[in-house]
Design a binder for these strands. Structure first.
Lengths: 153, 153
DNA sequence: ATATATGCAAACGCTTTGCATTTCG
DNA sequence: CGAAATGCAAAGCGTTTGCATATAT
């Protein structure tokens, strides 16, 4: 029904439009309450979040949020390049705002821990892939699996 | 019921035990018809196959094969190290025999094409991960996403 | 003989979809 | 007002599980 009221009544952020919000409108998309909530949830969350986590986070404050809207919105934002989707392997997919800078992941297959990886370490690999295979590696979608320092002991 | 007859009657390979078959028995596991079929399907298939593909392939010859057996057997073989499981991203998981040598993958996000990648190109990266992060990269599970030479033109 | 593996059917978790309803612009 | 977005419920997909039955050793 009237999800606007139930969701926004006590939202002190109404009226504050983030950079990404503005961008959405520029591109001709509607700025719905759901989209604003999802964007702020993604921006607040440090690091990377899954669709289900985003859903839970938004729903805790705005119980009207719907899981299909989460997926549809994430798809849209990803297509527009406002959000980056990272396939972490094992069926785990995480999202983070594109404007928060690039970094990559070391995923430990033993403890499941995820460490961030500085981009510079990949430069040599990118260059040799370019040279030898004419392959343009998409550095935004990088996850390396293995065993972390702790689990090796 | 009696899946042995229906599945093995016209299997000219009965009695020929592959290297991996033998290995299974050594380790104390039973050498069932299903396991033999699955192993030969995986070994025949050039390159990498998904669980569903293995299932389809085996079933075309031995209609009794069951999808849960495929998954259970692939889990077992992976744990034993006889088969390698590669997460290709996008929920796609492929398997190939461990004894067929190591190589990696360049997955084109545009055309979906998969190219094989020589292991040597990863040596510098592995070394720097080891040095800087004490992280032991699992090179058997490597897929790099990006755009292939053809799609860039 | 008996522990182990299989078949079957049901459930799983995540994701997608169709369609009626609502809402942003 | 009208196109676009949402809610809802159902289905999709690949995978896993519980339990009775069959079988390799």
């Amino acid at each position: 029904m009237c999800y606007r009221e139930s969701m926004l009544d006590n939202n002190s952020d109404v009226g504050r439009y983030s950079e990404t919000d503005q961008r959405l409108r520029q591109l001709g998309y509607r700025l719905t309450p759901q989209r604003m909530m999802l964007l702020s949830a993604i921006e607040e969350g440090e690091g990377h979040v899954s669709a289900e986590e985003i859903y839970a986070r938004v729903q805790s404050r705005y119980p009207g949020m719907n899981i299909s809207t989460v997926y549809r919105t994430l798809d849209l934002l990803t297509e527009l390049g406002l959000v980056t989707r990272t396939d972490m392997g094992g069926g785990v997919v995480r999202y983070h705002p594109s404007n928060k800078g690039q970094h990559h992941h070391l995923v430990c297959q033993e403890c499941g821990g995820v460490a961030e990886l500085d981009d510079s370490i990949l430069t040599p690999l990118r260059e040799s892939l370019e040279e030898k295979y004419q392959f343009q590696a998409d550095v935004r979608h990088f996850a390396i699996f293995g065993r972390c320092a702790r689990c090796r002991r």
